[in-house]
């Protein structure tokens, strides 16, 4: 069997207002089922997905935060977050529920170079 392609998913949208965050997670979990190596980068409004304590029942949506917490169960543990985006939104690393490795712009360029397929949401 040929080597599996390394997939990078870039999340740039806030949760709930659009379906991007949910769609991205579906793709990630599906890739996980196929045992494909997945990395996920949260940048721009996508970093809001990492804030915890979501109670989405009153807007009729499923709790994205609880679903993200399951990523390690799918052996998806390569999570990254853009430091600049955190700073822009005034979020500290400690305020995030889901831990991710912080990357600066140069490291993000390298991350993209290191993957075979990049999907943006």
């Amino acid at each position: 069997m040929p080597d599996k392609k390394k997939v990078l998913i870039i999340n740039r949208r806030a949760p709930y207002g659009r379906s991007n965050a949910r769609d991205s997670l579906d793709v990630a979990l599906t890739c996980g089922v196929f045992e494909m190596p997945i990395s996920i980068l949260f940048a721009d409004d996508g970093v809001f997905q990492l804030i915890g304590n979501h109670q989405a029942g009153d807007i009729g949506q499923k709790n994205l935060s609880a679903n993200l917490a399951a990523l390690p169960m799918y052996d998806i543990d390569q999570l990254f977050v853009c430091t600049e985006s955190l700073n822009t939104h005034g979020l500290t690393f400690d305020s995030l529920e889901h831990s991710a490795t912080q990357l600066d712009q140069t490291a993000i360029q390298q991350l993209i170079q290191d993957h075979d397929v990049v999907l943006t949401f």
């Binding site: 996980g32 609880a66 399951a70 169960m73 799918y74």
Partner: peptide, 18 residues
């Protein structure tokens, strides 16, 4: 328990792991 925690029913791989 998995459903309570992660709010979805697991696929086979995470089910085995859990």
């Amino acid at each position: 328990d998995f459903y309570q925690t992660f709010e979805h029913a697991p696929a086979m791989r995470p089910f085995v792991k859990a």
